[in-house]
């Protein structure tokens, strides 16, 4: 952690730089989404745009986390707490995602998984 005045002065320069990079990449996100020339993948919004948009967002987020939130030099406990938060967050998403493989039938032969196209008839229980 920056504690001496000189170190803090140095850190302030870094913060300004990171701020600038964040500004620029915000512009980039908007540009790739709105300027037809920069459109990746097919015309209009598609999965390529989604991946690119999320990658830029993840990059920006990691800059905020590592520099502004000092995660580049923290104590072990902080990493532990934050990682656990992320793991449980992903776990929460996974629970919802398991609805895809739900074998319970709703009405006549339709499960959520069938509707979504993730249905595997071989694994389906006999009615």
């Amino acid at each position: 952690m920056a504690d001496s005045v000189a170190e803090i002065q140095k850190a302030k320069k870094l913060y300004t730089l990171i701020g600038l990079i964040l500004f620029i990449f915000t512009g980039v996100t908007v540009a790739v989404a709105t300027v037809p020339f920069l459109d990746v993948g097919g015309h209009g919004f598609d999965s390529a745009d989604m991946v690119l948009g999320l990658l830029i967002a993840a990059f920006k987020a990691s800059l905020v986390m590592f520099i502004f939130m000092h995660l580049n030099h923290e104590k072990k406990l902080v990493y532990f707490l934050f990682t656990m938060g992320i793991i449980f967050g992903i776990f929460l998403m996974a629970i919802t995602a398991w609805a895809f493989s739900d074998p319970i039938r709703y009405g006549k032969g339709t499960t959520i998984s069938e509707k979504s196209g993730f249905y595997n008839p071989e694994r389906a229980p006999a009615n």
Partner: peptide
């Protein structure tokens, strides 16, 4: 950080 971990789960 405990609070932020819970926030990650909430927004996640």
């Amino acid at each position: 950080w405990l609070f932020l971990a819970s926030e990650v789960m909430l927004f996640g």
